[in-house]
Simulated scan of single mutants.
Amino acid sequence: MSIKVEQALISPRYLAGPGDPAWVTAALHEGAGWSHGHDPLMPRVVLTSPNQKSTLRLEPDLNEPWWHLSHHDGRTGSVWNASFGGGTPVELIAAVTDALTDPDYHARKVADPYQSLRRARWDAAPNGQFSSPDGRVTGERFNFSGSHSWRITATLDEDDPVWHAWFSAGTPPVLVAAFMQALADPEPVRRSHEQTIGFPRRRITLRWQEWPAERVARALPERIEHLAARRLNTPPPTLPTPPPAPRRTR
């Protein structure tokens, strides 16, 4: 007889609590090939992309965002960063890092990052402000010299923020769109007993369900395997066609 464990199915997902950071960090390291520094005296994780252009830093801080994703491309001059508070569900952050590490990332074009919000019947105004149907998530878009930045806040009550997310000017719209799509996804997220202890249960729907322990244990390894396969199946870059060899003359 297989062993079963209980997991909580929580919705809306944006109020489900942070979850397991490995859903992001282990996936980037083992699945997407990001290297990590190791400082046993500091409670932080620093991961760097294979091309050295992107960095993810996870550093618990009571007064600052815990997650920092930054990008700097010296060749193109592209610079942007995103940050997420410690209470941000890892599924939302993973949507951004998964989009960033997608082999087709540079080819994907997004005209409207709010499209998934509108499909989910969120209120999205022309000026860039938006809110969830229950009013627990609000966001706004800022315009700086034609470049947009975004700030998103989730709250339990009017003066009780759960997390903030920020995307700087220059952040590729495909990454913002990935975050918005995960934000509006009606699918509940799973949390273990330990991950629900002490977390406020106001404004959420929580349902316990039994799952085979082996299936629960395989969720993260399967995610890593999927990302690794996606990376390894990337076709090699197209090399420029060499000029024809000069013709020999007599």
Rank of each mutant, 00 (worst) to 15 (best):
Q181W: 07
G74K: 15
A182Y: 04
P172W: 15
A245H: 07
P21G: 01
F199N: 02
R230V: 07
H38F: 13
A22Q: 05
R218G: 11
A8R: 07
T249D: 10
L58M: 12
R44V: 00
D160P: 02
Y114N: 04
A228H: 06
W163M: 03
A95Q: 04
G146F: 06
F130P: 10
I224P: 02
G87C: 07
A213I: 10
L175S: 08
R44N: 01
T249P: 04
G170C: 04
L175P: 09
R223I: 01
G198W: 14
L156N: 09
S131L: 11
G135M: 14
D20E: 11
Q209F: 15
R207Q: 15
N127W: 15
D20N: 11
G19M: 00
A8T: 12
G31P: 07
A111C: 10
A169L: 09
D160V: 13
P103E: 09
Q181G: 01
R248Q: 10
P50H: 09
S147G: 05
A219E: 15
F144D: 10
E225G: 13
S54F: 05
L69N: 09
K109F: 14
A169C: 14
P237R: 02
R13C: 00
W23S: 00
V110I: 15
S149C: 13
A120T: 05
L47E: 14
G198E: 11
Q195V: 07
I197Y: 08
A217W: 06
H38W: 15
T48N: 00
W34I: 07
D134G: 03
G139R: 02
S149T: 13
L183R: 08
L156H: 13
M180C: 03
D123M: 10
D98I: 02
E158R: 15
I152R: 04
S192A: 12
F130N: 09
N233A: 03
Y14D: 03
S54M: 05
I197F: 06
A120H: 08
S70M: 07
V5P: 14
G86N: 08
G85N: 12
P244R: 00
S2V: 13
A245T: 10
H164E: 12
A229I: 03
S2N: 11
M1K: 08
A213K: 14
P186G: 04
R202Q: 14
A124V: 15
M180I: 02
